[in-house]
Nucleic acid binder design. Structure first.
Lengths: 195, 195, 195, 195
DNA sequence: TATGAATGAGAGTTCATTCAT
DNA sequence: CATGAATGAACTCTCATTCAT
């Protein structure tokens, strides 16, 4: 019986992968709020199958982005002991931004307080914020970041800056994030560099 | 005849005000996409009355925020000839932020590419962007702003930073905007202050 | 007081006329089911005024067409004693058709069993059918009409034939009515002329 | 897997049939414009089910009448080479009338220029009119029909004559159609049989 | 009498979600 | 496990009708 089960499990895994691929595409094209049915259709499965694998939309969103999230966490681990904590933070935020602007719609999802995105929010809190926090702490310790900047607020801000629209494209968002970071390097939130 | 008409018109105006108040509240609580019925109920009127006064949602949204938008435009006019263009821009952005974080939901509305918010977007383009543009230009001319910063992108960025959520409240948004502006003062978008 | 009352009555009559004119136009353009509000707007009055003058839509429809209906009745009176009853009926039906195809939408109204058009139907029954009936009887008596043809059925049939549409215009309807009448002249409903 | 799918498909087909039956009944009782909800209720299903099977009203109307339309087309094919083209046309029109008066409401639907009945109209144009046209042409060629009669106008006229109402029932409509056809056999549209 | 603001029932339509097969 | 038919709540929008002024 075990082989059959194995086969079934393999099939289920394939279905799951197909769903993740389909969802990623649909999220890019129509946003994270796209009808479940569209995702099911894109994946070539029935809607029930989507619900079986991902009981609610947030879990699907999380699953879609988990790889990138994990990659961000891994990157933070690598950068943790960098000699220039400020640069390290910049690099990490750069990767995070790349992720956000590529996966159109995640920015909106991240800021949505729509019930049902709670778990997405939790994921960010649980994984990304701590990962970012290490780098933030290091930068603060090295006197390369305003100590009043928290990892959480920084990520929200960066996430928000990555909500694109007509006339505000990827490069605009990236430039704004760079400027925000530059502003965060100053020793306080006031507009003048330390004299 | 005039008094009767006046009375009816006054009643209609009162209804209109009630709708604007109700809409503003509902927008704060549930977002600009809140059901028309909820707004009607909050105002204590029937749905038809909402449609009579505001044929589509965008007009209601615009009406709700028009006062503040006009105030922003007026403020820009005042600040136009300020001796310190950088400070003037900061002050104006500060007022804009105050407006955005007070009227929770407008941030989302402004970035929504949802059809039906076209007119809201147009309003911003037609009024706010030019108003801001004058101050931006002055600041650039005074060498107090990175010339690559455009009024439109700046407003989008600021608007995005003002999308609040649990754990990212008004003060966080304000601080981030201040940092962004500080970053924009530097002569380029790179992360190092001029050495 | 009498002059004022007279003035008021005159004003009311003028309003009534304006409504009839407006309704006739709107009926032609958008059918008898056109929104009451449109008719009020066309007449330059408030909706309440329409309801004051014509408590329900059918009464308005009736009033709009009453002149022509009366004219049809009068024409029937004239033709009553014609020497050629068959020709007389043809002529009368011709006038009726002219009326129907000119007043676009009446055909639909006449056949509508929509509640609320009962009185329109009654008007037809009370005035037009008897008027037509006299001519029908005369034609039958002169052996110029199939005796099985009733005035009511004939008028319904003619009314239906006058429901126009794209590709079936006035002239088509007129030609069909002529053919129907020709068919009614034969001594029975079968397709062959009496041999 | 096939049996399960088969069972579901069978259920869907049964639902579809129930919808067609319900729609046919509702169309008879309240016209083709009857609320979708009423049709759903009559069929004992939810509104969503109606939309699943028939995305818009026109498709439902078409589906309801498609059998009969196809039957009419088939009959025309059979009658195409009849020795007496005039009789053949009569027979075909008789069948068409039988269809129209049985499915009360189609007459109204056919003449409705309401947007959304375009496809119904197209169906008639594409299938019924050509089918009828063959018989009309044959009848004209055999000198048994007024050459100025077109298939389209004839069908419109017949369709209109089949719009029933109180006091104008099936038999009245049938008799009138017979008379109209008799009138069409004459060599012109004028009222006198050939002398 | 005239007005038109307000009402709210009713119709169309979408989509998340369930569940029998 | 997968399926997709069915459900029905929720939303938008229209318009006939009432009624205070």
């Amino acid at each position: 019986m075990s082989p059959e089960v194995g086969a079934r499990e393999a099939g289920a895994r394939r279905t799951r992968e197909a769903l993740l691929t389909a969802a990623a595409e649909v999220f890019v094209e129509r946003g994270v709020q796209a009808p479940i049915r569209d995702i099911a259709a894109r994946a070539g499965v029935g809607v029930g199958t989507v619900y079986r694998h991902f009981p609610d939309r947030a879990e699907l969103v999380i699953a879609v982005y988990r790889h990138q999230i994990d990659a961000c966490v891994a990157l933070a681990d690598e950068l943790e002991d960098a000699s220039e904590p400020g640069r390290a933070l910049e690099e990490w935020i750069g990767a995070f931004v790349e992720f956000l602007v590529t996966k159109h719609g995640l920015g909106v999802a991240l800021q949505s307080d729509d019930a049902g995105f709670q778990s997405l929010h939790s994921l960010m809190l649980d994984k990304l914020v701590p990962a970012c926090g290490v780098l933030v702490d290091a930068a603060v310790a090295a006197d390369e970041l305003d100590p009043s900047v928290t990892a959480y607020a920084l990520m929200r801000a960066v996430g928000n800056l990555c909500i694109l629209g007509p006339g505000y494209e990827r490069d605009d968002a990236k430039a704004m994030v760079v400027r925000l970071l530059a502003g965060c390097r100053l020793t306080d939130g006031r507009s003048e560099p330390a004299t």
